[in-house]
């Protein structure tokens, strides 16, 4: 039931206008990032740069390189770990009856909604006591733990759709728990694994509060570096704008290339109301 005639033109035009509105910040960011500091002026902010100045990028990249590396290590490790643990949890919680099983899932999922301000102080005390404070391993641990609720939830709702007969058949064939997991679950887990990984990667890459309170300077991820760059005494706006683009690039690329899965992650994350 697609519209025809005038409505069709109207709808299409409206979409184009809205798209422009949504792209305005990108335009502004790119334009500003390519200007030289002298050319950046509030009144002429919308104009294209008279001469391309890549200095913002080279400076930002040089400053950001170690933090980008931190972010990659952090996001990759934490994503994989939380995804693997989540899939095990999801499988167990979906197919086995546990004592108090009905209460377990809501209790786990609640963990993904809590405001982290309410656990921040004990968290850093704990990290200090366990000597995990300040470095990447500690931050990875924190992201894995607070990522477990969502990964468990996503995998569980996926495994619920696998018909029980499949497990039954494997059970008769004499496969034990890990056998079933290995021969039935893992081969089926490709797409959800991707969904979970994309979701977790974006979340962890973009996180700020833990990053700023739990790391020493040498282990800080990119979001903290960007906040420092933009919130410090920087006057020339080309630098934070170039920095923003560098910090955003990985997640935006993932999204553009694997957008389908990203949307699936979003939808699954919204629970099944």
């Amino acid at each position: 039931m697609k519209p025809k005639g005038v409505t069709r033109v109207f709808v299409q035009t409206l979409a184009v206008l809205l798209a422009i509105a949504y792209l305005i910040p990108v335009y502004m960011t790119i334009v500003t990032s390519l200007k030289s500091p002298e050319e950046i002026n509030l009144m002429t902010a919308w104009r294209l740069p008279s001469k391309l100045n890549w200095a913002g990028y080279s400076v930002a990249f040089r400053q950001f390189a170690p933090y980008l590396k931190n972010s990659f290590i952090l996001a990759v490790c934490a994503t994989l770990l939380s995804a693997v643990m989540g899939s095990l949890n999801g499988y167990v919680l979906c197919k086995y009856k546990l004592p108090g099983g009905r209460a377990i899932m809501p209790l786990i999922v609640f963990g993904m909604f809590i405001p982290y301000q309410s656990i921040l102080v004990p968290l850093f005390q704990f990290m200090q006591k366990t000597k995990l404070y300040g470095g990447l391993p500690g931050l990875i641990l924190v992201h894995v733990v607070y990522g477990l609720p969502i990964t468990t939830l996503l995998f569980r709702s996926f495994y619920q759709e696998i018909p029980d007969e499949l497990f039954g058949a494997a059970g008769i064939d004499g496969a034990d728990f890990f056998g079933i997991f290995k021969y039935v679950i893992i081969p089926l887990s490709g797409p959800p694994f991707l969904v979970v990984c994309i979701w977790q990667f974006t979340q962890i890459w973009n996180e700020f509060l833990f990053a700023v309170t739990l790391t020493r300077p040498d282990a800080q991820p990119i979001t903290v570096a960007l906040a420092n760059l933009a919130g410090g005494q920087a006057v020339s706006w080309n630098l934070p704008m170039a920095g923003s683009i560098l910090a955003a690039l990985p997640t935006v690329l993932i999204y553009i290339l694997l957008g389908r899965y990203f949307v699936r992650g979003l939808l699954a994350g919204a629970l099944k109301g």
């Binding site: 949504y22 890459w205 973009n206 910090a247 997640t251 935006v252 999204y255």
Partner: peptide, 9 residues
Amino acid sequence: YPMSLSLVV
């Protein structure tokens, strides 16, 4: 696409 950005960005 804005969804994929960090709130800091």
